[in-house]
Amino acid sequence: MGYTLNFDAVWRSFDRLLAGLGLSLMLAIVAIAIGCVIGLVVAFALRSPSGLLRRPAGLYVTVIRNTPILVLVLFTYFALPQLGVRLDKINSFIATLAIYSGAYLAEVFRAGLIAVPPGLREAGLAIGLTEMQIRTSITLPVMLRNVLPALSSTFISLFKDTSLAAAIAVPELTFEARKINVETFRVVETWIVASCLYVATCTVLAALMRRIERRLAILR
């Protein structure tokens, strides 16, 4: 056990780790933005009385939730080009992550929609609002506040999932860490620093989200 810690080599490459972290965050943010749109549409489809909307939406959610994300990442990047869908590494990964998060967010939003008391819709009807106005002025804002905690934990786990982009050589944090590991042989130091960067980012993200939650919380 004659291993002595020496962080010099890692500090020298620290800017690369930071750049990787930046890319990780970017991937997560773009993916969840698209994923929210998908999730919202699918959530309304899941609540639709028409089986023509509900069944495909349910299938999408079930399939995505039960398939390992790494398989999805590899499938999109390596197999889809055979069908003529050719995306570069980053776009391919963002597309995968967006579709992946869409399924989880659909469940989150669906639960949120169920939690909106039906009386609110009736009160909206009683003052003459149309169904569409009720959806945009009442159901959506109430639902979004309800799901904020779930939304932030989905975002954090999505941020961690960006590490899988390393599998298709997207230079995000995990990929950079692995490269530095191989180049410098400062194995322990590299992974300690990389983990700490992830943990610190998750902690900061969680704190930020809690602030937003508190801002927007419905007072009870």
Binding site: E122, A126, I127, I138, P141, V142, R220
Partner: peptide, 16 residues
Amino acid sequence: RLLTGMAFQQFNLFPH
């Protein structure tokens, strides 16, 4: 529906 106004048992105020 604008011809009438309604108050509900559960108030149904918009919480947000």
